[in-house]
Design a protein around this nucleic acid. Structure first.
Lengths: 140, 140
DNA sequence: AATATAAATGCAAGTATTTGCAATTACAAA
DNA sequence: TTTGTAATTGCAAATACTTGCATTTATATT
């Protein structure tokens, strides 16, 4: 709740308007911490609110760019998004049920700086696909 | 050349037919080691050979699954592919000119095993986006 | 509270990706 | 070599993703 309010504030501080679609979107993510959704999934969940797909799509991209959401690439290449309340982190992604779990290790902190050889790193992507504890048991 | 022959053999050994589109595809990648191409780029380069886009698309996916090609996700989400002659590796990707360079460090070797907590890792993705040495200079 | 105005939305069109299927082709077996 | 058969292809249709633009809406200003 407090967190939710502050997310709306963050949007406004960055100069964005606080519209109904954006409230729905943040509300959904806020009420499901740790879950990540694709644009299509959010569209389905918000059916009845009359929000257009493209609006969801554009807002997810915008919020990811602004650092309000973090984007996770699923195995099939589609992007999913979740609230990014904390600091920089990566994800374990269950290929069976889709659950994600944050991990705090970042390979950029671990690798040897000598590999760059003139390359200037800006961003990176690191995701681990596999089976979550529950699905690991199921699939034995 | 020798390598090329063996790639065709690997396809046959796995039970795939050696068709004209597949020869074109492997030939192109073989002649441009270290370069990675999207399906669309290969389609454009093979214009005149009369190969359908969907054929290229499906073969790239197939060869990636078979470990003949390695798939690299570009920043915008589209997949590009390159010959995967060596062992497991990751990439530096220039966001300006698109060049890729292989690196041999793998985060999976570096991270602490205690993070799994019941999760069973199967695959992972690790890519570093930034500017290659040339583009680093250009953009100063 | 009314108004001006720039941002955001919904719609529809555009592009890109993926799939189903009938026709074709590689290749194993005769 | 010819033939049979399943894999593969090209085409076209179906999805999925992205964008342009006229209309609407949030909000700063009066």
């Amino acid at each position: 709740m407090g967190e939710f309010k502050s997310l709306e504030k963050r949007l406004k501080n960055k100069g964005y308007k606080l519209t109904a679609p954006r409230r729905f979107l943040l509300g959904l993510l806020e009420n499901n911490p740790g879950k990540s959704y694709s644009a299509q999934e959010i569209f389905d969940l918000l059916k009845g609110k009359g929000v257009d797909f493209s609006t969801i799509y554009r807002n997810l991209e915008m919020m990811a760019k602004e650092g309000i959401l973090s984007a996770v690439q699923r195995e099939n290449g589609t992007s999913s998004y979740e609230l990014c309340l904390n600091h920089h982190h990566h994800h374990l992604i269950c290929t069976d049920c889709g659950a994600t779990r944050c991990i705090n290790v970042c390979p950029m902190d671990l690798i040897d700086k000598s590999i760059w050889e003139g390359f200037t790193p800006k961003k990176h992507r690191f995701e681990i696909m596999g089976l979550c504890p529950e699905c690991s048991k199921k699939n034995t």
